[in-house]
Amino acid sequence: MGFKLLSKLLVYLTASIMAIASPLAFSVDSSGEYPTVSEIPVGEVRLYQIADGVWSHIATQSFDGAVYPSNGLIVRDGDELLLIDTAWGAKNTAALLAEIEKQIGLPVTRAVSTHFHDDRVGGVDVLRAAGVATYASPSTRRLAEVEGNEIPTHSLEGLSSSGDAVRFGPVELFYPGAAHSTDNLIVYVPSASVLYGGCAIYELSRTSAGNVADADLAEWPTSIERIQQHYPEAQFVIPGHGLPGGLDLLKHTTNVVKAHTNRSVVE
């Protein structure tokens, strides 16, 4: 069995187990497998329904001669939608809004960016022009300005110390501490036991640490421990890039980060 097929099978099995364990909360999309990078042309966006009122959005972007996937989250909030992270750029984010209108038909009224990198804030200006209120932590807003990236308009308070959590509509926002970046936030959907790890969490097929220019490698494993301790009931975990899975993604990420750190020390 090929690795790609095995990865998709694991996603399907995880979703099936969740649907059985929580039949009222989960209505997993039966329309197909989780979209992969090879299936999404740059400039297009796919939506994948995880649970009743919960979707991931998947886009792709060219970077350094390669094409990478990027995940975000959409959560229903009454007759409105909360968006977590842009679709990595203005063109993708405009396509995301169009796809949401086509498939869901509810307005996106608020959006949260989970850290300051372009795959999370690139497209904020498109959201703002569409009347979406954009939010991020003060740290993310400051770092985005320093980096020359787009800056969300509103500040999220109460997320300055490791372990801080605040309720934001249908989700809980959690600051686990520094990891992929010093400002990275985690998003949890309690009604569906869905954990969105953003770039602080890796997919299972990833074996290298990737972009760690703004990471705190020493603190990252401790931050992941905080996530595990705060959300032990999480059933569906979405990484910032690639295929979702279960809580095993947290341990896998820790292993990859520690291996990278150990290699760096040896070198």
Rank of each mutant, 00 (worst) to 15 (best):
G2H: 15
G2Q: 15
G2W: 09
G2F: 15
F3C: 06
F3D: 06
L5F: 14
L6T: 08
L6W: 09
L6Q: 09
K8H: 06
K8V: 15
L9I: 15
L10S: 15
L10M: 11
L10Y: 15
L10P: 14
T14K: 08
T14S: 09
T14G: 06
T14C: 10
A15Y: 12
S16Q: 15
M18H: 15
M18D: 12
A19E: 15
I20E: 15
I20M: 12
A21C: 15
A21P: 08
A21F: 14
A21E: 14
S22D: 13
L24A: 10
L24W: 06
A25V: 12
A25N: 13
A25M: 15
A25E: 13
S27F: 10
V28W: 08
S30V: 12
G32R: 09
P35I: 08
P35Y: 10
P35C: 07
V37P: 15
V37K: 13
S38I: 08
I40R: 07
I40C: 06
P41L: 09
P41E: 14
V42H: 10
G43S: 07
G43T: 05
E44A: 12
E44V: 10
E44H: 12
V45N: 03
V45P: 12
Q49F: 09
I50Q: 05
I50M: 09
A51C: 05
D52C: 06
D52R: 10
D52F: 10
D52M: 08
V54E: 02
S56M: 15
S56P: 10
S56Q: 15
H57M: 01
I58R: 07
A59H: 05
A59C: 06
A59V: 10
Q61S: 10
Q61G: 04
F63K: 04
D64Y: 15
G65D: 10
G65Y: 06
G65A: 09
Y68P: 03
P69D: 15
P69Q: 15
S70N: 03
S70M: 03
N71Q: 03
G72E: 03
L73I: 07
L73D: 03
I74D: 02
I74R: 03
V75R: 03
V75C: 03
R76D: 06
D77Q: 03
G78A: 08
G78T: 08
D79F: 09
E80N: 08
E80Y: 06
L81K: 00
L82K: 00
L82T: 08
L82V: 09
I84L: 13
I84K: 00
A87Y: 00
W88T: 00
G89V: 02
G89I: 00
A90E: 12
T93R: 00
T93A: 02
A95R: 11
A98Q: 13
I100D: 01
I100W: 01
E101V: 09
E101T: 11
E101Q: 14
K102W: 10
Q103M: 14
I104P: 00
I104K: 00
G105T: 13
G105Q: 11
G105K: 11
G105N: 11
L106I: 13
L106C: 07
P107G: 08
V108I: 10
V108W: 02
T109D: 06
T109C: 06
T109W: 07
R110H: 11
A111G: 09
V112L: 11
V112N: 02
S113A: 10
S113N: 06
S113K: 01
S113T: 05
S113D: 03
S113P: 06
H115R: 02
H115P: 03
F116D: 02
F116Y: 09
F116C: 04
H117G: 00
H117M: 00
D118W: 05
D118G: 11
D119R: 01
V121W: 01
V121Y: 01
V121I: 08
V121E: 01
G122M: 11
G122T: 06
G123K: 04
V124A: 08
V124C: 03
V124F: 06
D125R: 08
V126S: 06
V126M: 05
A129T: 10
A129R: 11
A129W: 08
A130E: 11
A130P: 07
A130K: 12
A130G: 10
G131K: 10
G131H: 08
G131L: 06
V132C: 02
V132I: 13
V132D: 03
A133N: 09
A133C: 07
A133P: 14
A133K: 14
T134P: 01
T134H: 03
S137E: 02
P138Q: 09
P138E: 09
S139V: 13
T140I: 05
R142E: 14
R142V: 13
R142Q: 12
A144S: 11
A144M: 04
E145W: 12
E145H: 14
E145K: 14
V146C: 09
E147A: 15
G148Q: 10
G148M: 08
N149A: 14
I151K: 08
I151D: 03
I151Q: 08
P152Q: 02
T153H: 11
H154R: 10
H154G: 09
S155D: 13
L156H: 05
L156M: 08
E157F: 10
E157L: 11
E157K: 10
G158W: 05
G158H: 15
L159C: 05
L159I: 10
S160D: 13
S161W: 10
S162A: 14
S162Q: 12
G163D: 07
G163K: 05
G163E: 08
D164A: 13
D164M: 11
A165H: 12
V166I: 11
V166G: 05
R167S: 11
R167D: 14
V171A: 05
V171G: 02
L173Y: 01
L173W: 03
P176E: 00
P176Y: 00
G177E: 01
G177N: 03
G177Y: 02
G177F: 00
A179E: 04
H180I: 00
H180L: 04
H180V: 01
S181W: 02
S181M: 01
S181N: 00
S181R: 01
T182S: 11
T182E: 12
D183A: 01
I186V: 13
V187T: 02
V187I: 09
V187G: 02
V189F: 04
P190Y: 06
P190M: 07
P190G: 08
P190E: 12
S191N: 11
S191D: 12
S191P: 07
S191A: 12
A192S: 11
A192Q: 13
A192L: 07
A192W: 05
V194T: 06
L195F: 07
L195R: 00
Y196P: 02
Y196E: 03
Y196H: 06
G197A: 14
A200V: 07
I201L: 14
Y202H: 14
E203T: 06
L204E: 15
R206Y: 07
T207N: 14
S208I: 10
S208N: 15
S208K: 10
S208F: 10
A209K: 09
G210H: 03
G210V: 04
G210M: 04
N211L: 05
N211P: 00
V212H: 06
V212Y: 04
A213Q: 14
D214V: 05
A215V: 05
A215K: 03
A215P: 03
D216E: 08
A218W: 11
A218Q: 14
W220K: 00
P221I: 10
T222M: 12
T222A: 12
S223I: 01
S223D: 01
I224H: 00
E225M: 11
I227M: 12
I227P: 00
I227A: 04
Q228E: 13
Q228D: 07
H230D: 07
H230C: 04
H230I: 10
H230R: 15
Y231R: 01
Y231S: 02
Y231G: 01
P232D: 07
P232G: 12
A234N: 00
Q235V: 10
Q235T: 09
F236L: 09
V237P: 03
V237E: 02
I238W: 03
I238Y: 03
P239N: 03
G240I: 07
G240D: 06
G242R: 04
G242C: 06
P244M: 09
P244E: 04
P244G: 04
P244F: 07
G245H: 04
G245K: 03
L247G: 10
D248T: 12
D248G: 12
L249M: 11
L249F: 06
K251T: 13
H252N: 08
H252G: 03
T253Q: 00
T253S: 07
T254H: 12
N255G: 13
K258W: 09
A259E: 11
H260Y: 09
H260D: 11
T261V: 14
T261R: 11
R263I: 13
R263N: 15
S264D: 13
S264K: 15
S264R: 12
S264P: 12
V265Q: 13
V265H: 11
V265C: 05
V265Y: 12
V266A: 14
E267K: 12
E267V: 05
